[in-house]
């Protein structure tokens, strides 16, 4: 640990060649090199820009007593269909809204509105994920003091959204039965960071060669603790259990440890 401020950057203290100026001040530790060159030791996380905004979101949500879920999956895993089935029931006893991210169109927000849910579309255009700033801009227009829950439906993508903290309380990862047993191993960040894992489209199981034992073992390898719920938006299987799990998470009996996020790693 750094003796100056308690930060965990061991390196700059051990490199005795560096001058003594501290790295958090205006001048960073600098080593003079031949040919008028200098090496500046920076040692800072490049997720910091998004992370600072996510931290602001989290404080803002907390001040509004808002519980925020970030729902992530590959495209076509059934995020919107599931939310259209699940949320109207939960909306009976919670004031909730959905912010949904897609590259283009308002199709998903329109579907959710048709299902009777308050929804707001974000178009990310070239970007493959939502970030803290986009969420901040969108929720500014929603009137958070009127809400108990905010559900963020991220851009359909197993890779990028998992890297960007939005300030949410809980991360939900969805994997559909058609995606096979090995995806949790191939996309470790999404599944290892989830607070709840949903296996969707269980109605298709009779038609698939999916080995559920292997899938569960692979999910557990990546994430030993998160509840795993199998459900179907089509048949309704598991939806009650899922609603109960969301109520349980939102009740605050589980306190999420935000330090586990990839972006907060220092």
């Amino acid at each position: 640990m750094c003796r100056d401020c308690g930060c965990s950057t061991v390196k700059h203290r051990l490199l005795s060649d560096f001058n003594t100026s501290h790295h958090h001040g205006p001048s960073l530790p600098t080593l003079t090199l031949p040919n008028n060159k200098r090496r500046i030791s920076v040692e800072e996380s490049l997720f910091e820009k998004n992370q600072n905004l996510a931290r602001k979101n989290r404080q803002w949500f907390k001040s509004q007593k808002l519980v925020v879920f970030n729902v992530m999956s590959s495209p076509g895993a059934g995020k919107t269909t599931l939310l259209c089935k699940l949320l109207p029931k939960l909306a009976l006893d919670h004031r909730l809204a959905v912010v949904v991210g897609d590259q283009e169109t308002s199709i998903d927000a329109d579907r959710l509105k048709t299902a009777g849910v308050v929804a707001f579309q974000i178009n990310t255009h070239s970007a493959c994920h939502l970030d803290a700033k986009r969420v901040m801009d969108a929720v500014g227009q929603l009137g958070l003091d009127q809400l108990d829950w905010l559900v963020i439906e991220n851009v359909g993508n197993r890779v990028c959204p998992a890297v960007f903290d939005l300030g949410e309380n809980f991360r939900i990862a969805i994997l559909s039965t058609t995606e096979g047993e090995e995806k949790p191993l191939k996309y470790p960040v999404l599944f290892s960071e989830a607070d709840l894992i949903i296996i969707s489209k269980s109605d298709l199981l009779p038609h698939l060669d999916l080995n559920q034992t292997t899938l569960l073992a692979n999910l557990r390898k990546m994430n030993p603790n998160a509840p795993i719920i199998t459900c179907s938006s089509k048949s309704g299987e598991g939806l009650e259990q899922l609603a109960d799990e969301l109520r349980y998470l939102a009740s605050g009996k589980e306190t999420p440890d935000v330090s586990r996020y990839a972006n907060t790693h220092t």
Partner: peptide
């Protein structure tokens, strides 16, 4: 092997 995305250092000159 971990989750690091770190700006480690840079070499600069004045010319």
């Amino acid at each position: 092997s971990g989750r690091e995305f770190q700006f480690v250092s840079m070499e600069v000159d004045d010319v």
